[in-house]
Write a protein that binds this DNA or RNA. Sequence first.
DNA 1: TCAGTATGGGTAG
DNA 2: TACCCCTACTGAT
Length: 267
Amino acid sequence: MPEGHTIHRLAERHRDVFAGDAVRAWSPQGRFASGAAAIDGAVLVDTAAHGKHLFYDFGGDRFLHVHLGLIGTFRTFRHDPPEPTPTTRLALGNDSAAAYLTGPMTCRLVTHPEADEVLGGLGPDPLRDGMRGRVAFRANLRRRSLPIGSALLDQRIVAGIGNVYRAEILFLCGIDPRVPANAVTQDDADRLWETMVLQLRHGRRIGRIVTVEPAEVGARYRTTIPPEDRLYVYHRDGLPCRHCGAEIRRFDLGGRSIWFCPVEQVR
DNA sequence: TCAGTATGGGTAG
DNA sequence: TACCCCTACTGAT
């Protein structure tokens, strides 16, 4: 589930598990054999996440840069890790844990300047920048006329939002996905930013995307809400809006599907 | 066993 | 805009 909350959670988990230790690294699949060999046995200094990008500092100007893409996964095992599957691009391990990376879009070693180049192309990250990031976000919207639904997926405008969060956040803010970014009012831009910060923090904490309020689906805890009750609009075309009962609609925006409520999202 | 799908993004035209 | 890559899972055949 690689939106920003997943990436930040991985950075924290892998810092907890591996930082300060010499880490074994190998590539069962073989496609990252030389890169893995270059960090095998090195001490992991720290990890960092920015948007959907993950960085592992192995010292000596060696940074592992990972982007999961659409289908990448990083599975972490604290005790008795199984053998990695043959498709595992990179395996990391110490005496007590292992992490197996499959299907990433990016898995490479970079230098500090190369990492900075990646970071320089990213907009503010709700999980890194918190409420401070709203000024940059607001300015980024003002400069663009593309639909706000496309803008939220543009990592240069805001880093870490994916297709689930963009639909859910626009619903929570009552904003029509087709409105031009530079026509979004300052109040709405601030509301969008605040909603992204709160929702991504919640997603990072519980490890999944749950935007509905428990009271709306009769659940006591947000983490125990069944999958079909976790979201307001994403993949709910044809179903009634949880707020007004109108039929949720789907259309293509920026080459990807977006779902919205035609009654609740009118600004 | 195969086709379809997925929370992403780069490149060619 | 179309197409491509990466992997795992689901449902149809």
